[in-house]
Every structure is written in C-alpha cells, then in structure tokens.
Amino acid sequence: MKSKSVITRFNNCYILRNSKIIKEDLWIRDGKIENPEQIFYEEQLEANVTVNCDNLLIAPGFIDIQINGACGVDFSYDSENVQNGINTVAKKLLEHGVTSFCPTLITSHPEKYRQILPKIKKTQGGKHGATVLGVHLEGPFISLEKKGAHLDEYIKTPEKGIETMRQVYGPLDDVVIVTLAPELPGAIEAIKDLTKEGIKVALGHSTAALAQGEEAIKNGANMITHLFNAMLPFHHRDPGLVGLLASTTDKQVYYGLISDGIHTHPAALRIACRANPEGLVLVSDAVAALGLADGRYRIGPQAVTVLDGRAYISGTDVLCGSTTALDQCVQTFKKCIDCTPEYALEAASLHPARALGIDGRKGKLDFGYDADFIIMEPKTLNVLSTWIAGEQVYSKPK
C-alpha cells in the first residue's frame, strides 16, 4: 500500500534533529517523516516530488499550550460563535509557525464553560488551521490573592476534588490541561483524579509554598503556568513554586514562560533556563488583540485596553496576557538569553510536546513522527512556510 503513496523529498536544507541542526534531506510520506534508507534499500523507491529548500532551515512546528485568543477572538467570551472563533485563530496561527495549540479559557461563570467547552473539539490541522490538541482551563480554581486578570467573583475552591470541577466545567472530554492553585482545599485530590483521567495539571495563580508545590508534583501535576507571573516571588527561605525549578522531586517539571519582552525580564529568563533547561516551555499567552492594533478588547468577562502593544485590564495596570505570537517569543527569547537556535526552537516544540506527553509523535523531525514543520530563515528564524501532515498550509507572501 505504501508504494502507491506520494513521497516528497526536501533537499538542500538544514534540519533540526536531536537538538542539532544538520545538513540532511527530509522525506515525507502519508503525513509522516520517513527513513530514506528504508525507501531506497528496502522498498527501492524514489521521491515523487523534490523540493529545493535553498539552504533554509526546517524545524518542528511550534506548539502553543497557552493562548487565549487572537484576531479579535477571545475563547472565553463569545459563546455564540465558538467554532468560527477557533477556526479564525487556528488559521492565523499558521502564519506564526504554530501547527498545534491549546485554546485557553480563563476563569468564567459556570454557564460559560457549559456553553463553550462542548463546542471546542480536538481537531486535526490542515489548510483550515492549526491542530487543536484540546482545551487548557486556566481557573477558576485559583488563589484570590494571585488572581491576576481573573475576576474574583467567579473564583472557586475544589472542595470535593474533581466532583466540584465537573459541577463547574461540565464534561472534560476535550480538556488536556487544568491550571489550579495547589494550596486550595481539595486541590491535591483534584490533581490525583485529573491525572487518572489523562489530563495534565499545571500549578499557577497561587500563593503555594514550595512544600505544597512539591506535594502537588508528587501527586501528578507536571507543569507551572507562566512562571514568575501570578505567584509568590522567590524568597530564599521559601522559594514557593519558583523553587520547583531546582526541586529534588524525581519528576521533570515543565514551566511556561512568556518571553514577549514585557512579562518576564531577560535576567529572569536566564535564571529559569539555567536552573531547569529541559523544563522550559515557551508560550504566547496571547489575547484577542494579537494581530490587531491598540484598542479595546476582552478577556473572558473583563474589558481589556491595549496601549503600545501591552494588554491591561481596563482602568488598571494589571497585565492580562500578551499581544505577541509564539514565533516572535522564540526570537525574543533567543536574543535575551543568547542561546542556540536549536534550544530556542525546541523550547516551543519539543518541550511542550513532552509536557503534554505527545512527544512520541510531535515536537521532533524523527522517523515516524507527524510531518508538522516550518521552513525558516536560519539567521532570523522568520517563518517562511508552515506544513501540517506534510502539506503546505501557509506560505509567506513574497
């Protein structure tokens, strides 16, 4: 059967594989990355299509595990046009090299979850837009003291664990991440139950001490949401959730970082990277204003004002997400910490795939993996084209 499939060879290119950029061809068949030795020697076939890449760089597609919206769309607000909103953002993300993403809903009224969640389904990407991996629920089971841009009247405590969560959210069928504060009553039981359901738990919007964070990790949590933001600052006697970067737990802890040049100081980026390089996951945390001019927008139930590219809860100085796409975050991150392009690119592809437990099929250009990749300028890391399952789904206008 395979012999009848179209085989595409990308040559005259550099590819990111095993944390190294190497000069090597990339072979694609049936939406997967193929081993050329098998094609040549075992099947004795040749490529049907050859793409000359002119010494450009091919890297795995970006995976954005925290994004609230874009193009005027806020995933937590418009319950009447959910599918249109998802489609609009998914299409826009292709321009930024994002091949997979997790639409993120912030703290909302229970009725909003019941209206919106059933309409967001895990969806394979293509020319219509990036793959929807599943929903990231950020709140409402968070700390009032570290609510950030979340509305306090909707914040809740998971007193009965996952039972309370189901009462608020409804079915969790297409949920892949829940962000919660581990110090809340019932949170540890919720973490255990969510983990049993195959849902990843991220710690965030929290006043947790390090010991509480470690207890959460031991019981199944594996991520921290937007490190440094909406949590206790590092203190040498009790470093809080930030201390999980250097914790003695035997589990890899992944942590999101917003490297938009606003949310996290370059020195903080460097500290986190040096303390726990394998756990660093770049996220956009983008809001509805992504791709648009300064003005008035929304994030869930609250009004947002964007001034000079910074998004604030209207009438306050509280930041409420980013207006920067993930490809720009990668470029800013590389510049701020002066790392290799290999590391910056993997922080937005391999690392999020590992955090979600999908690194057996996404986040790499290894044989047998999904052929989700981007072709970039090697020096600037500007996205020139985006490919999902071996199909070109975006090309930068010339």
Rank of each mutant, 00 (worst) to 15 (best):
Y394G: 00
I313F: 03
I271T: 15
G357V: 11
G295C: 01
L282G: 10
G125A: 12
Q252N: 02
Y77M: 06
A303R: 14
R114L: 01
I337S: 01
V393L: 03
Y169N: 10
E138I: 08
D173S: 12
L326T: 11
G161T: 03
N48E: 04
K398A: 14
L241G: 13
N382V: 12
G186M: 02
R354I: 08
K91I: 13
I21Q: 10
N84Q: 12
N229F: 06
R17C: 08
E46A: 12
E24C: 05
Q328T: 14
Q66Y: 12
T157V: 15
P118H: 06
S108Q: 04
F75N: 01
I33T: 06
N11T: 14
S322P: 08
E189P: 02
G204H: 07
N18Y: 12
K362I: 02
A286V: 04
V306Q: 06
F75T: 11
F234I: 09
K160I: 02
R298E: 05
A70F: 05
N18P: 07
I375D: 00
T164R: 01
L350I: 09
D308N: 15
Y113M: 08
L26K: 00
E214H: 05
I28P: 04
Y297M: 01
P60A: 02
C329Y: 10
H136R: 05
F40L: 14
D30W: 04
G368Y: 04
P233D: 07
G161F: 00
G368A: 01
G390Y: 06
K91D: 11
P171D: 08
G129Y: 07
V201S: 11
K122A: 12
P118L: 05
N48A: 05
A209I: 08
H205R: 09
W27N: 00
H263Y: 01
P60W: 00
E346F: 06
N382D: 15
I188R: 04
I58T: 09
Q115N: 06
T50M: 06
R361M: 12
G360T: 13
Y255W: 13
I63T: 02
A325P: 13
N12K: 09
I155M: 11
V393F: 07
C336P: 01
L57S: 07
T179S: 05
H226W: 06
Y154F: 15
S284I: 09
A187H: 00
S247F: 03
R114D: 03
L16Q: 00
Q44H: 11
R237F: 10
L45I: 04
H351I: 09
Y297G: 02
H150S: 00
V51F: 13
E46R: 13
H128V: 08
P171K: 08
G69A: 07
G300D: 12
D78R: 08
A371C: 01
D152W: 10
D370V: 02
P110I: 04
G368P: 11
F75W: 13
H235T: 14
P103Q: 03
K218S: 15
I67N: 08
Q167A: 13
F373Y: 15
L350Q: 09
G213N: 06
A353G: 04
R166S: 12
N11D: 14
L137G: 02
H265C: 09
I374G: 01
V287L: 04
G134C: 08
S314E: 15
H235R: 07
Q331K: 14
A288V: 08
I63C: 03
L365N: 00
I388R: 13
V178H: 02
D25I: 07
L45H: 03
V287R: 03
T179H: 04
T99Y: 03
G321I: 07
V330M: 08
Y113S: 05
